[in-house]
Design a protein around this nucleic acid. Structure first.
Length: 801
RNA sequence: GCCCGGGUGGCGGAAUUGGUAGACGCGUUGGGCUUAAAACCCAAUGGCCUACAUAGGCUGUGAGGGUUCGAAUCCCUCCCCGGGCACCA
């Protein structure tokens, strides 16, 4: 017979709800605050999966713990309901997202209650609520006002299945982040946001953050800062010049050719007559192919223009080529080819028989052994600069060229501006109006929110136009400036827009004058702990940091960064150690687990599986261990209720204090798996013993954040009120200082014996006692003691010759 | 190719950061309860070996080497797995 978890869990969930979640409310400006945040879900309709439960349980434990510790805890939840995930699901089910999404939200919320998550539901937000997206639009207009929003026709990534343009960040390995389709390149006129203006700050401020190193590294790589020089190469017999970008000015004496990207304006302009048709067809061909395809190609291609560039130092004539291994959208779209020290230039030179000169070597006055040699080293074959190390050479050569006006320092980033238009229905309408007379005119603030119109058909068109385009009534409007007939922008914002600032709205969710009051923001920010999946490393987490910094510059938020500490929960694999997926049939459904074992078991098992950050497989058998543990708690409680014991034994007291200490420290370090182990150890220890009610209730208190239902039920059998309101038990350090210590006796580093010693014993006493032990004597026969090493309270190592 | 993680029993994982390797849990084996099974309870459980037994020995944290009285932990070389980036000049 198992304990009646269904009855207990239902009972307390009902009471908590009836109590209007009062125990979980955050109060502004009251005492010491802590802001514990989850990444809010997209309510797609598939329901919560075990991965959500993992992260949400972890923060729930923290929230419950800190409340008991007397903190003012902000632990909110909301819905990221705009965007592709929700819309694609609605499309699949042939429903309108406007009616469908609220249903999904209900389902998600219901599931969260079934897991026993202690959110402050008064602060619930929904990104599709006009009262919410009013402020998303407002912030967008602020960016527009500050010149960070611009329109440009550019080749962008386009998902043929979702039928919309995507940002660079949304293309993972050439595929759409949402649906996995291979993306295409389309030339579309899109709104962009100048996130690149913040590249340097986004990079630098990473250092201050308590984030996993790999996430910081991913952001650094994504931003991809390169410092170098722009160098001018004159074209022989022409006024025109080619500006190239290089980070390796030390290799300039090895530049034996110049390469232009096919898109480079000079590519089509400069070829000698006999080369024109060749170059033109090459350019035409490469423009047809998306960048991604060009990259994958092993074989290098390119054409000679028939023209030569003048080397800026030696004055030598070097050939100018056009090749698509040079990217137009990075740097200046032109490079100097240094085949001896760059693998791509090397391959290119080999293929077309171009000159290769080594100019950097690992050793002075020596040619490098293997080409290409891409590391820094010492200069050779470089005239006056021979013998200098690469770094010095870069500076010296840079100085020389700068003086001659042929070079200047330059910084380039891999990060590109954020493509912000989506050709989809389910998003925040971009609040801009196109007036034939005034051009682009923002929707006046008083007219916000610009509501998304209700429609019958919202299927994406695939033409590069938004479905909103067909809603003539909505599209046709008057220009706010000149009142003449005008049209609304019909593209919508990407799904990331709403999630860029949702953590701010929780702080002041009902404010209808501002997105949030500054004093409240000052009290609650920054977010102290943010838990969520690593998949947002260069998406949401980069966008939100950018958005936050923008608001910071307008003095609208008090901190430079939104999220101080970030923790990524590791994904939970199926029992077969493979990623959970419907097609593999290895998906664990949390609803079913709750049905079979209850929410407390589900919560605790997910915390017990291993470290929060680790990727770990679900073990269908393993969960029984937690279930047994909770059953044992229930059984043992019956024994305690009958007990008349008044005074606790010292040994049990020590054990309890040890457990409280371990659980306290482990929760703060988010090491939930070992916290649970130590509680199991405690129960195992007292299992055949009797404890007082006080001892037992202290144990129940520390178990509460992990298993709130069963503990609250047990608590109610002794005392009134909610465990949320109880103070976290303190542990007594004095009790933890044991009188006797176990000393391990090693001989030459190997454990041979152990003995118990009074803590007050002197080293001499311990040594003497140890050397007299029969086992020790046996090992020391015919040997001379050379040295004795003693580690206080731990080890005595006897070293012999 | 480059950059991050990581390799510990049959499995998930512990190990105070250089000091008893394998906590806790699963599984397995033996025993109890039961007409029987499940559930539950008790005990054993890294591998190899010696022993009638109480016991005891050797070996062991991906491989090899090094530092140290002492290494899962630090250093060097290599192998393997996971993740990210990938013609970014």
């Amino acid at each position: 017979m198992s304990y009646p978890f269904k009855k207990i869990e239902k009972k307390w969930q009902k009471i908590w709800k009836k109590n209007k979640y009062k125990n979980w409310k955050a109060k502004d400006f009251k005492g010491k605050k802590i802001y514990i945040l989850d990444m809010f879900p997209y309510p797609s309709g598939e329901g919560l999966h075990v991965g959500h439960v993992e992260g949400y349980t972890a923060t729930d434990i923290l929230a419950r713990y800190y409340r008991m510790k007397g903190y003012n805890v902000l632990h909110p939840m909301g819905w990221d309901a705009f965007g592709l995930p929700a819309e694609n699901y609605a499309l699949k089910m042939k429903k309108n997202p406007m009616t469908f999404v609220p249903k999904n939200i209900k389902r998600y919320k219901n599931q969260m209650e079934m897991i026993g998550l202690s959110y402050d539901w008064d602060r619930e937000i929904n990104t599709t609520d006009p009262n919410y997206y009013k402020w998303t639009q407002w912030m967008f207009l602020k960016m527009y006002e500050k010149g960070l929003v611009y329109q440009k026709t550019a080749p962008i990534n386009f998902c043929p299945s979702c039928k919309t343009g995507l940002a660079n960040e949304e293309v993972i390995g050439g595929r759409c982040e949402r649906c996995g389709s291979i993306t295409e390149v389309k030339y579309l006129n899109q709104w962009h946001i100048k996130i690149t203006a913040y590249a340097d700050r986004l990079l630098e401020d990473l250092d201050e953050l308590d984030w996993p190193e790999n996430v910081k590294e991913m952001q650094r790589n994504w931003i991809g800062k390169s410092e170098g020089y722009e160098v001018t190469f004159k074209i022989a017999g022409e006024e025109k010049e080619i500006i190239i970008f290089t980070t390796r000015l030390d290799t300039i004496f090895g530049a034996t050719f110049v390469v232009l990207a096919p898109e480079h304006p000079l590519s089509a302009k400069i070829p000698e007559e006999e080369y024109v048709s060749n170059v033109e067809s090459y350019i035409e061909n490469s423009l047809k192919r998306p960048e991604r395809e060009r990259k994958i190609e092993e074989e290098m291609s390119g054409v000679f223009t028939g023209r030569y560039a003048i080397h800026p130092i030696t004055g030598e004539r070097i050939p100018i080529w056009v090749s698509d291994y040079v990217l137009y959208y990075y740097g200046t779209g032109a490079i100097m080819g240094v085949p001896a020290h760059d693998s791509r230039d090397y391959r290119f030179a080999k293929k077309f028989g171009l000159k290769i000169i080594s100019v950097v070597s690992p050793n002075k006055n020596e040619e490098p052994q293997n080409l290409p040699f891409e590391d820094y080293g010492y200069l050779i074959n470089s005239f006056d600069y021979n013998g200098l190390d690469s770094k010095t050479a870069i500076e010296e050569i840079g100085k020389y060229l700068e003086e001659k006006g042929l070079a200047k320092k330059a910084v380039y980033y891999k990060l590109r501006d954020w493509v912000f238009s989506r050709q989809r229905y389910w998003g925040e309408p971009i609040p801009l109006i196109k007036c034939p007379k005034c051009g682009i005119v923002p929707v006046p603030e008083k007219d916000l929110p610009l509501k998304l119109p209700k429609v019958k058909s919202y299927e994406p068109t695939g033409t590069g136009e938004s479905p909103l385009k067909n809603i003539t009534k909505w599209v046709k409007t008057k220009c706010p400036k000149c009142k003449s007939d005008a049209e609304r922008e019909t593209h919508t914002m990407p799904q990331w827009a709403g999630s860029c600032w949702y953590y701010l709205r929780y702080i002041d969710p009902k404010n209808n004058k501002k997105f949030a009051g500054f004093q409240k923001l000052k009290y609650w920010l920054p977010v102290d702990i943010y838990v969520g999946g690593v998949e947002h490393a260069v998406l949401h987490l980069l966008y939100a940091r950018f958005w936050h910094k923008f608001l910071y510059d307008l003095n609208l938020v008090p901190t430079k960064e939104p999220f101080m500490k970030l923790v990524n929960q590791g994904i939970i694999l199926g029992p077969d150690h493979e990623k959970m997926s419907k097609s593999r049939g290895n998906v664990i459904n949390p609803d079913e687990v709750i049905e079979k074992y209850g929410a407390d078991t589900l919560r605790m098992y997910e915390m017990f599986m291993g470290p929060l950050e680790a990727v770990k497989p679900w073990d269908t058998k393993g969960i029984i261990g937690i279930f047994r543990f909770l059953n044992k708690v229930w059984e043992y409680n019956k024994k305690v209720r009958k007990s008349k014991k008044k005074k606790e034994d010292t040994k049990i007291n020590i054990e309890l204090n040890k457990t409280i200490k371990k659980v306290t420290e482990d929760i703060e370090a988010m090491k939930f798996n070992t916290a649970i182990s130590s509680m199991m150890e405690f129960l195992n220890y007292v299992w055949d013993k009797e404890v007082t009610k006080t001892t037992w209730l202290n144990f129940i208190k520390i178990l509460f954040p992990f298993a709130p239902h069963i503990t609250q039920e047990i608590w109610s059998q002794y005392k009134k009120g909610f465990l949320d309101k109880e103070a976290w038990p303190k542990y007594d350090e004095k009790l933890l200082k044991e009188k006797e210590k176990l000393i391990i006796i090693q001989i030459n580093g190997k454990k041979r014996d152990e003995m118990s010693v009074d803590v007050s014993a002197s080293l001499e006493e311990i040594q003497k006692e140890a050397l007299e032990r029969t086992k020790v004597k046996k090992f020391l026969e015919n040997k001379k003691v050379h040295k004795i090493i003693f580690v206080q309270d731990k080890i005595l190592n006897i070293v012999t010759d």
